[in-house]
Simulated scan of single mutants.
Amino acid sequence: MTQKELTHSAIELLKKLISIQSFSKEEDKTADAIQAWLLSYGISTERDGNNIYAKNKHWADDKPTLLLNSHHDTVKPNQAYTKDPFHPHIEDGKLYGLGSNDAGGPLVSLLATFVHFYQADNLNHNILMVASAEEENAGEHSLRGLLPKLPHIDVAIVGEPTLMQLAIAEKGLVVFDAVVKGTPSHAAHPNTDNSIYNTIEVLQWFKDYKFEKTSEALGDVKMTVTQISAGSQHNVVPSQVNLVVDVRVNDAYSNKEIADLLKKDAPCELEERSLRLNSSKIDKDHPLVKSGIALGRSTYGSPTLSDQAALSCQSLKLGPGDSTRSHSADEYIYVHEIEEGIDIYIKLLKGFLAPNGE
């Protein structure tokens, strides 16, 4: 099969995936479709929940392993859609449909790349393909839940829309619940300890706080108060105000360091929800990155979270499509972006895996 035929097949698979509802935790039918597509190329798969994975034909336990991963779940369509989110169709070179850009395009491009290299018998790495579930909600049965059942992974490409530029680092995330306390009282009486007024100073502290360490790839840690709630009656001063604080962590800190620092310094009670979504990166001189740079790809740091946060190995985020289209109304990906994505993936892996024949 030629690369052109394989690309056409991948685009047809994407159309099929778009037509199937696959919200997080409801991806069983898209999992079936991915299994059937791989089987059509003689590739047997394994399945864990709605995660589908497969090994290259000439797997050797003494070789390091490259993971190719993207997800087939989607968010729910927002109310601003003007097109049927489950009706894949091409207009002016754009393939429309829910999940077309995030992350259907990267997923089918990686699947096509895996098929391309599947039978190569002299690769310097094994290739493990994982089409994962529950990425959008970081669920228990996502890549994170699957990893303990997989072989050791040495390096990974995570397929997300990056315009086929090399995201060599990705910010982590810690969400905090904050409580600003005060003295409850009737609104008609004096109260010098009003929790809502106390919050003014706390909000200013969060707004002005600066983390010392910056990152070449990811810049500064970004901290944002995103939610605030208090009170239930007009004539009652509440005993506390509840805040939610979103912290996007660069690779100069671990999530635990961020939590320890803020809990020590913050002028209010603070509790983290989870520390598991750490930042991730790959060395700029890693052979995988060098192979991409040799193809004219640029490097950058990504502010958005992906399944990279589940991986302990070095990983590169790379894929066709544009992150700014993700979760938007009337989501789309250009057909030429998929064609280019498959071509660049294959060329990048040729440089990295160095097969002598195909």
Rank of each mutant, 00 (worst) to 15 (best):
E257N: 05
A80P: 09
T304H: 11
T299N: 07
Q35C: 13
G341N: 04
L150D: 10
G351P: 00
A138K: 08
S132V: 03
H186S: 13
P190M: 05
Q233H: 09
A60P: 04
S19I: 00
A133F: 08
N50L: 06
T162H: 02
D251E: 15
D61P: 09
A131L: 07
Q165G: 11
E358W: 15
D322L: 08
D28K: 14
K207A: 13
E201S: 14
I282D: 00
Q3Y: 08
I153Q: 03
A294Q: 13
G231C: 02
T45A: 06
D283P: 06
Y197I: 13
L288D: 06
F206P: 14
F117S: 03
L17M: 15
D260F: 07
T113S: 09
S323Q: 11
R325K: 15
A252G: 15
R248Q: 04
I338N: 05
F352E: 11
V180R: 06
L318H: 11
N191L: 13
D193A: 11
Y345L: 03
V202N: 03
Q227S: 01
A294S: 12
K94E: 07
N51M: 08
L147M: 09
V155Y: 07
G341A: 01
D343Q: 09
E337H: 12
L262H: 12
G172T: 04
N51V: 01
H336K: 10
I153E: 10
G172F: 05
V179W: 10
E257V: 12
E339K: 13
D154F: 09
N56T: 04
L277H: 03
K55N: 07
D92S: 12
G351A: 07
S70N: 05
Q227E: 10
S280P: 00
S142V: 15
I90E: 10
S239D: 15
A188T: 07
H116D: 05
K149I: 08
F86P: 00
F23E: 14
Y118D: 03
Q79N: 15
D28I: 11
E140W: 03
E339W: 08
